[in-house]
Write a protein that binds this DNA or RNA. Structure first.
Lengths: 279, 279
DNA sequence: ACGATCGATACCCGCCCGGTATCGCCGCCC
DNA sequence: GGGCGGCGATACCGGGCGGGTATCGATCGT
C-alpha cells in the first residue's frame, strides 16, 4: 500500500464525499474514484458503501481510517525528523505547554546543558494538549506533559514529580484566607466559571466558562474576575500579584512526565530523559 | 514520501550495498540508485555516503532508518488489520506466549465470552518476545505479556497481576526441600545453566546455557537435567511430575499486563481490556 | 598495471497517474 | 411527474516516472 493511496482514502473517508475530497487533495474527482477502487481491489474488500447520493464507511473502512491515519502520521514524522536531523544538525526539540512546567523545564535544561555531550535543545512552547500532536508528527522529539490531563497513549514516558492542585482566584476574592477549598466548591463559584480547554482536535466542550488556549490568557481572565481555575500547585510560584491560590486537597493529583515517541530513543533523547528522572 | 521509497531506502540502509538491496527488493540496481537519489533530493539532504567501495549512513540517514522502519510497520499493520476486519468479520486476535499466562488466559477468555456482545477471539500462541512484533505489524490486536521481560515500548497497557518467581529444577535435585533459594545461588547451579531466550531480532545473547524458544522446550531440557530456569510463580500449577519449583524471593517481581497498540482502541479490544482488569 | 567490483549515468519502453468529457443514477422541487 | 441538479462511474488520452539493459568511471587488490 502506498502512502498516496492512504492519503486519498483518508480524505474520502473523512469527507464522505468524493468531490470535496478530490478538491482537498488538489486532484480531479475521477482519478480519485479510480484510486479508491484499485485500493479496494488490492485489499480484496469493500471500504466504502456508495450510492449516488451518499458515501458510508464499511467495517473494514473504519479500521483502515483509524490505522491509516496513524500510519500517515508515522510517515510524516519520519520525513520531518529526517529533515530536522540534517538541517538543525544534532539537537532535540522539546515540547511543553506555554506557561506550565516552568520550574521543571528550567532545571532540566540547565542540568542537561551541563552534560559533556549535550546537544542543543529547541524548546517548543505550545498550546494545551498539543504536545502529543507535535511528538506524533515529528516536530518534537520529547515533551513534558501532565497526567491525567494530557493523553500519553502511544508514548513512552517516565514520571518526574507529583503535586496537588490549587484554586487560582483574583486577589481579594471573598475566599481570601481560607486554608483550603474542596473541589465541588471550587467548581461552583458564583460568577467565576472554570474555563474550557480546547480538545486535541481543536473543538471545545460546551459549557458556561470562557475558552482559553494557554496560561497567559487564563491568568488574564482570572485577574479580570471572569474566571477561576484549578491548576497544579507549582503554578503558584509564577502567579502575578493580582492573583492568589488556595489548595484543593481533594482534586486529583497531577503527575509531570517526560514523554517521547517509542522508536525515537536517540542518544540525545535518552540523555535528556535520564537527566530529567535524576532531578 | 511514498512507502516504496521508504522500503527502498530501508533495504539499502540495512544492506549498505546497492546490489544486494536491489536483489532483495527484486529490482535492478540502477533504478534503486536513482530512487535513493531522488529521495535525497526531495528531502534536501544526503542520506548515504557512498564511495565506489563502501556505503555508510549519514546522521540523517540513521534517523530515517529508525523512523522509516516504524512507519513501514504502521502501514503494514494498517493493511493487515483491514484485511482481517473484512475476512474474519468482527473479531480480535490475542497474542500470548505459548506455555505462559495459561491461567489468566483461560479466565479472561471465559469471562469475555460471557459478555453479551462478545466477538470471537483468535488466540495466537507465539514464541517468547514475539507478542510486540505481532501487535506492531497487525497480526494481533491485543496481547498478554510480562514486565519487565517483554518490551512494552510503544504499547498501551493495563497491569493485571504481579507475582514472584520460582526456580524450576528436575525433580529430585539436591535442593529438594529448601524453602527458598536466592537469585545468586540459582544463577550458578553446578551443571544446570540458565537458558538463553532469543531477542526480538532473533539473535541470542552469548553464554553457556542452551537456547530455548518456548516453555515446552524449556521444560523438556530441565527434565533432562540440562538446565534450570527462574520463572513466574504461576507456572508451578502447570509443572510436569518430573519438575519441581522453589521460591526465589529476591528475584524481580513479574507483572502480567494486557497490552494493545495505541490507536487500536476498537470496541472489542476495549471490552477485552476491561474484562481483564476486572478479573 | 590490470581486472574485478560497485555505484552512477544514459537511454528506452511501458504502465499508471492525472486530466477532460460524458454517462447513469437518484433525490428534489416546481 | 418530468425536468433539473448533484454525484459517482466510465471512457479515453497524454505525459511522467518507474523499471530494464548497456555502459561508464572510480577504486581497491593483486
Amino acid at each position: 500500500m502506498e502512502t498516496r493511496e492512504l492519503r486519498y482514502f483518508v480524505a474520502v473517508a473523512e469527507e464522505l464525499h468524493f468531490g470535496r475530497a478530490a478538491e482537498r487533495l488538489g486532484i480531479a474527482q475521477p482519478p480519485l474514484s479510480r484510486a479508491i477502487r484499485q485500493l479496494e481491489r488490492r485489499l480484496g474488500t469493500e471500504l466504502l458503501e456508495r450510492t449516488s447520493r451518499s458515501v458510508r464507511l464499511t467495517e473494514a473502512g473504519t479500521v483502515l481510517l483509524r490505522e491509516g491515519r496513524a500510519a500517515l502520521y508515522a510517515v510524516e514524522a519520519a520525513e520531518r525528523r529526517t529533515r530536522r536531523a540534517s538541517a538543525d544538525g544534532p539537537g532535540v526539540a522539546l515540547a511543553a505547554k506555554a506557561g506550565a512546567s516552568g520550574e521543571v523545564l528550567a532545571k532540566l535544561l540547565d542540568a542537561y546543558a551541563a552534560l559533556p555531550d549535550a546537544v542543543t535543545v529547541d524548546v517548543i512552547l505550545c498550546g494545551v494538549g498539543q504536545q502529543e500532536r507535535l511528538l506524533r508528527d515529528g516536530r518534537a522529539d520529547v515533551a513534558l506533559l501532565h497526567k491525567p490531563f494530557d493523553a500519553t497513549s502511544g508514548l513512552d514516558y517516565e514520571e518526574l514529580s507529583t503535586e496537588g492542585q490549587v484554586l487560582v482566584l483574583p486577589a481579594g476574592h471573598s475566599l481570601t484566607g481560607r486554608s483550603h477549598v474542596d473541589l465541588a466548591e471550587a467548581s461552583a463559584l458564583p460568577g467565576l466559571p472554570l474555563p474550557r480547554w480546547p480538545a486535541i482536535d481543536g473543538s471545545c466542550p460546551d459549557g458556561p466558562g470562557p475558552q482559553v488556549r494557554d496560561h497567559a490568557q487564563l491568568f488574564q481572565l482570572i485577574a479580570l474576575g471572569r474566571a477561576a481555575a484549578v491548576l497544579p500547585a507549582s503554578c503558584e510560584s509564577q502567579l502575578r500579584d493580582d492573583l492568589m491560590a488556595i489548595p484543593v486537597p481533594d482534586a486529583p493529583k497531577v503527575t509531570t512526565v517526560i514523554a517521547w515517541p517509542p522508536q525515537s530513543r536517540s542518544a540525545a533523547v535518552a540523555a535528556l530523559v535520564r537527566t530529567a528522572t535524576a532531578l
